[in-house]
Amino acid sequence: MLTVSQLVKRVASPEAGGAAVEIVRVPELSLAAGEQVALRGESGSGKTTFLHLIAGILAADEGKIVIDGEDVASLGESQRDRAREARIGYIFQTFNLLQGYTVLENVVLGMSFGPGGVDRARARQLLERVGLGHRLHHFPRQLSTGQQQRVAVARALANRPKLVLADEPTGNLDRTHGREALGLIREACREAGAALLLVSHDPDVLAQFERVRDFAEINQPRVPLPRAG
């Protein structure tokens, strides 16, 4: 399903006088279809950057990211956009809901740019699945944080992704709601037949996964990173 090999990302670092510094170097990582894997990592260890690379939001400098048989690392930007819309659902740390759009519209936009086209009935179903069937025409600011997170989950699944990437999806929730949200994400992915790659530093979250890997082992940039705390 997902195979990452020899992946490298460098950025211009102000600390190094603008010189390129490696922040991601992942020799190998793979995920089977429908598999759920959690990556444990410190803050500033490059988790978000890694997920952005897989999603094609960032361009890789070296290596391969093969998703469903296609190497997205070798694609140009607009093809990566298309590949992302076609196969990937992304749950952001800060949800990143569109504030000017209703809950339903947020989910609809999650399926608007791909080949599948818009299916409003499916958008409603997804929102009902996450328990927001009665909040379709609310705006995100009218929802609680936990409800916003559930909109983000519904939106990530809108385009029938093969792979869902979740970046500290419970970072903004309290313990109880965090557990609930995580359960929902995992269940929804399982129902949808999507693989799940989640990054977190929260032991409570990580404890729920059968397969947890240390991001520090996976990611070995040549120049050590200054730890941000």
């Binding site: 939001i57 607009s78 952001f92 569109l98 740019f113």
Partner: peptide, 16 residues
Amino acid sequence: RRDLAILRALGARRRT
């Protein structure tokens, strides 16, 4: 900016 970036992240092309 943020909305536009989110739309991009959802798969919208630059030219869209």
